[in-house]
Computed example of a mutant assay.
Amino acid sequence: MSMTPLEIALERIKECRSTRSPELDLSKLGLDAIPEPVFELAWLEKLDVAGDRKNGNREISAKSLLRLGNSLH
């Protein structure tokens, strides 16, 4: 059984948390919002949420982006 896009994102977030990587790639997952655990990654410097060409770019909610910006300060 294949994983859902959210499950894939949560796995990537878990890996980022364990390695404390400054970069997190959530691109090409078609997410509508940034998953809550991302806001706990205070060391994060780069978050990639780009869409893919096949499905077009999906917009991340402005509320999620503002919250992310506030959590990095």
Rank of each mutant, 00 (worst) to 15 (best):
M1E: 13
M1F: 06
M1R: 13
M1A: 14
M1N: 12
S2C: 05
S2A: 11
S2R: 13
M3N: 06
M3T: 08
T4I: 09
T4R: 09
T4C: 09
T4P: 11
L6M: 14
L6P: 03
L6S: 04
L6F: 01
I8H: 03
L10F: 01
L10T: 02
L10P: 03
E11T: 14
R12K: 15
R12N: 11
R12T: 15
R12V: 08
R12Q: 12
R12E: 09
I13C: 15
K14R: 14
K14T: 13
C16H: 05
C16S: 13
R17P: 02
R17L: 12
S18H: 10
S18D: 14
S18I: 13
S18W: 00
T19Y: 02
T19S: 15
R20E: 15
R20D: 04
R20Q: 15
S21Q: 02
S21C: 14
P22S: 10
P22W: 10
P22Y: 04
L24W: 14
L24P: 04
L24T: 06
L24C: 06
D25N: 15
D25V: 02
S27K: 05
S27F: 00
S27N: 06
K28E: 11
L29A: 11
L29S: 13
L29R: 01
L29D: 12
L31S: 04
L31W: 02
D32F: 09
D32I: 08
D32Y: 11
A33F: 10
A33V: 15
A33Q: 12
I34H: 03
I34T: 08
I34K: 05
P35A: 08
P35W: 08
P35S: 04
P35Y: 07
P35F: 02
P35T: 10
P37N: 11
P37A: 08
P37V: 09
V38T: 08
F39M: 05
E40V: 02
L41D: 05
L41A: 01
L41T: 06
A42Y: 00
A42P: 00
W43Q: 10
W43K: 01
W43D: 00
L44V: 08
L44Q: 10
L44K: 05
L44I: 06
E45S: 05
E45C: 02
L47I: 06
L47G: 11
V49M: 15
A50M: 00
A50H: 11
A50G: 07
A50Q: 14
G51L: 03
D52I: 04
D52V: 01
D52T: 07
R53D: 10
R53K: 14
K54G: 07
G56F: 13
N57E: 12
E59S: 12
I60S: 03
I60Y: 05
I60A: 07
S61V: 03
S61K: 08
S61E: 14
A62D: 13
A62T: 13
K63Q: 09
S64C: 11
L65E: 08
L65N: 02
L65R: 12
L66T: 08
L66D: 07
R67N: 03
L68Q: 06
G69T: 04
N70Y: 00
N70M: 12
N70A: 15
S71I: 03
S71T: 08
L72T: 00
L72G: 01
L72A: 00
H73N: 08
H73G: 00
